[in-house]
Design a binder for these strands. Structure first.
Length: 508
DNA sequence: TTCCGACAGTGGGGTCGCAAT
DNA sequence: ATTGCGACCCCACTATCGGAA
């Protein structure tokens, strides 16, 4: 098949807003794909690459060569070139990559160039990723989408699942099973603002567990072999020897466990997330960093113990299996209750111990791999501040033509000015986007680089955030974590905004 | 008919490793 | 030595579609 066929299908998918129409377009193409190109086509059309990443981003795609007029490139040719690009390494690799990019793009028409460029940047923007592609595969193969979805949760890579479904049907899907050593997409949590809200949503007795501000890990053990994967299924085994040793020391030799690694201080309180993150991503000289920043691990779920797959069993049953396989000091603090007061006390205790919050879990729900299942709900405290808008940036995609990303500042009484603490684009409705675009243009002041519009510091906006972290990026040496807009405060003037001292007090 | 779950999209700060400067 | 880039860790929120209620 030719790349242009995919580019045309992608355009048709993007042109329609109805999901069912998108699915029809995708299924039509999958219906005529050759088996040996199915994996490539499914990957490209769901915004992924078979190579996962190839070391080319925004900068590497500047100034593409002149496009061809006739489309001749096949999927296989394109994909082979992407593999060659990924294989480049060492000094001179940037130049080599650039040469291969030019070779690749020089063989494409303009439409193909646009499609591939968006794909490589991770900005396909056709309104169809895995969720829609699952339905399209099911339709093309004549199978229930639930079967495709189930196989995906066990395999973790939709192109492989789709190719199998298209060539060998339901039998191929049934052949996928939890395999020790191959990661499963982790179950994710929804979130609410309070313990009562979470309890009423789940109803009945629930489990409440501490939420640690570390890195999610899935640990597999088969015999003496231990491997560890992240939330995005990357293998970090070599970076977390403490975890490998802890799992290797367990009595059970056949395990898949779900948990969190975190760096703790000697007194047991957690290090800031930045410390854990830096330690986990260090790959060079792990034995040295290990001595400086040791990692601890805490498990909260078991997907497999001693030959038994537990994915479809109720959460409570899985937890019993977990505590049977793992010593108590490696199990995350947890309580079972249906009492709001007891739950709130447990939540406060987690916060007092320096942790991020809690996750409230239904005792019944199975492990919904890869989904933001309704069975798990996280609860975190929410801080708010009244800050001043210092500037705004023009948006992309569906926010094109709207001023979107806000630069936020706190008042500095010492200078009478404002100190920038970060940006946010979250929490804005379409109506608010339209309003603020007009308002900011009226307040515009000073030089504009065509990207950022500086405004007179007059508008006060209420901002929610998860915490304050150290920052080398901003003049105050601190930045807000996960800032989002709650509402504008027309009732406040800039001289009533919150101050840098108030922010600094939260940086502990 | 209304409600709500799932999905896609729009981006945030920080860190590491690598190649280029 | 420093800088820029890619990749990945953490992540919140809104709009939309279409099936469920």
């Amino acid at each position: 098949m030719l790349l242009i066929d995919l580019a045309r299908t992608s355009a048709a998918v993007a042109a329609s807003s109805a999901r069912l129409a998108k699915i029809t377009h995708l299924a039509e193409l999958l219906g005529r794909i050759e088996p040996d190109e199915a994996e490539i086509a499914i990957a490209y059309l769901s915004g992924e690459l078979p190579q996962r990443n190839i070391g080319v981003g925004l900068a590497g795609l500047q100034d593409p060569p002149e496009p061809r007029l006739a489309a001749t490139a096949t999927l296989r040719q394109v994909n082979d070139l992407l593999s060659r690009i990924k294989a480049q390494a060492g000094p001179g690799s940037q130049t080599a990559r650039r040469a291969l990019i030019v070779e690749l793009f020089g063989a494409l028409t303009r439409q193909e160039q646009m499609f591939l460029s968006r794909l490589l940047r991770g900005e396909l923007r056709q309104g169809a990723l895995d969720g829609v592609m699952i339905e399209a595969i099911a339709k093309a193969a004549g199978l229930p989408s639930a079967e495709v979805r189930r196989a995906l949760t066990l395999r973790g890579w939709l192109p492989a699942v789709g190719a199998a479904a298209l060539s060998d049907g339901i039998a191929a899907l049934h052949a996928f099973h939890l395999e020790v050593g191959r990661p499963v997409s982790p179950m994710l949590a929804q979130s609410t603002t309070s313990i009562p809200a979470a309890l009423s949503k789940l109803g009945g007795p629930v489990a409440i567990e501490w939420k640690l501000d570390g890195v999610r890990v899935q640990a597999h053990r088969s015999g003496d072999e231990v491997s560890v994967f992240t939330r995005t299924l990357d293998d970090i085994t070599a970076q977390v020897p403490e975890l490998v040793e802890a799992v290797g020391a367990l009595p059970s030799r056949d395990l898949v466990l779900d948990g969190e690694v975190i760096a703790l201080r000697p007194d047991g309180r957690p290090e800031p997330f930045q410390v854990t993150s830096g330690r986990v991503s260090s790959r060079i000289d792990v034995s040295t960093v290990r001595g400086k920043v040791p990692l601890s691990v805490f498990f909260f779920d078991a997907l497999r113990v001693d030959g038994a797959d537990l994915l479809d069993l109720p959460g409570e049953v899985r937890h019993v299996a977990l505590t049977g396989a793992v010593p108590a000091e490696l199990v995350i603090p947890r309580m079972v209750t249906d009492d709001v007061t007891a739950g709130e006390a447990f939540f406060k205790d987690a916060i007092r111990s320096g942790h991020e919050g809690v996750v409230v879990k239904s005792l019944q729900t199975p492990y919904a791999a890869g989904r933001r299942g309704a069975g798990w709900i996280k609860v975190k405290p929410r801080h708010t501040l009244d800050l001043v808008v210092l500037a705004a940036e023009w948006g992309h995609g569906r926010r094109e033509g709207k001023l979107s990303n806000l630069h936020l500042g706190a008042r500095d009484p010492a200078t009478g000015g404002f100190v920038m603490l970060g940006k946010t684009f979250k929490g804005l409705t379409d109506e608010l986007l339209a309003w603020q675009t007009e308002r900011f243009l009226g307040l515009a002041e000073g030089p504009t680089d065509g990207w950022t519009v500086a405004v007179r510091p007059e508008l006060v906006v209420e901002i929610a955030f998860d915490g304050v972290q150290q920052s080398s990026r901003y003049p105050g040496g601190m930045a807000l974590r996960f800032a989002r807009v709650i509402r504008y405060r027309p009732d406040k003037n800039a001289d009533q905004a919150d101050t840098v001292e108030m922010v600094r007090a939260l940086l502990l």
